[in-house]
Design a protein around this nucleic acid. Structure first.
Lengths: 136, 136
DNA sequence: TTTTAAAATTTACAGTTGTAATAGTTAGTA
DNA sequence: TACTAACTATTACAACTGTAAATTTTAAAA
């Protein structure tokens, strides 16, 4: 984990596509943009280029075009972005954040049950574990 | 809710202070910055000014200085920032997001229990309510 | 009332982001 | 092999951010 580059809002769109499936050409990336996204081809290529400058994407040549692939992991990025959000908005208080989300969000029964299951499991563990939180 | 202005990372620090206690002078805001924040006075005043331009802060004169107070609510801002984060990182999938957070975060027993309580309550309601989600 | 010190306002400046247009390169095609 | 269409790379430019310094205003002090 060398030091995650900062990924902007638009760049996230590109990364999400690439993480789902790669390697991929610029052309393909454009095709995979969520509907409603109204970016010109050039704009998308600019984003791709910036991501390469940031070392978030790598490429290999293939005929006339490049095949891009991620150099940073989605998990790491999600973790970093979550950390940032949590600090900015909730001063790092994860419990408060989740309470808030639960109260404001509509969830399906399945989701509720899954969350309950996770909590149940956590409840058993928390008491056992030290406050460290890093296990393989 | 006219249309929330976009609050930057640094500006959030100012807003969080003002929301906690207001009205407040620039001087006081500086004093309430979290320790470790290494901003010059001028920098803080720049942020305050930008927040006024954005109509996020208002003021009333008091002697030689201004007393600032919020013009936008914390709840609204938190909601907006959460929405943005959720879309950017999880494509809007709240359940996925919470699952992820629960799995990555260390929580106290109290917090776990509180979350369980909220879920329990939600479980009763979800089945009753329509999928609308807007009640007074 | 003039001075002055503290506040606020204006200006600065580089880096990031959104949004492309334009220029340069190159692999196929004629 | 020369041409061209598709790709990539470079350049553009304004708005937003982080970070202040310089300037102007003004209430309080002398």
């Amino acid at each position: 984990m060398e030091k995650m580059p900062k990924i902007s809002e638009s760049e996230w769109e590109i990364m999400k596509i690439i993480w789902r499936e790669n390697p991929m050409t610029a052309e393909q990336i454009v095709q995979h943009l969520p509907e409603g996204t109204d970016w010109s081809d050039q704009t998308v290529r600019t984003f791709i280029n910036r991501l390469m400058k940031k070392k978030a994407l790598g490429y290999q040549k293939s005929g006339r075009s490049y095949l891009y692939y991620p150099l940073i992991s989605e998990k790491e990025c999600v973790r970093e972005e979550s950390r940032s959000f949590l600090n900015r908005v909730f001063n790092g208080a994860a419990g408060l954040m989740m309470t808030n989300f639960l109260e404001e969000t509509q969830l399906s029964d399945q989701e509720i049950e899954q969350l309950q299951r996770i909590l149940l499991e956590k409840q058993g563990k928390e008491t056992r574990d030290s406050k460290d939180g890093s296990q393989p």
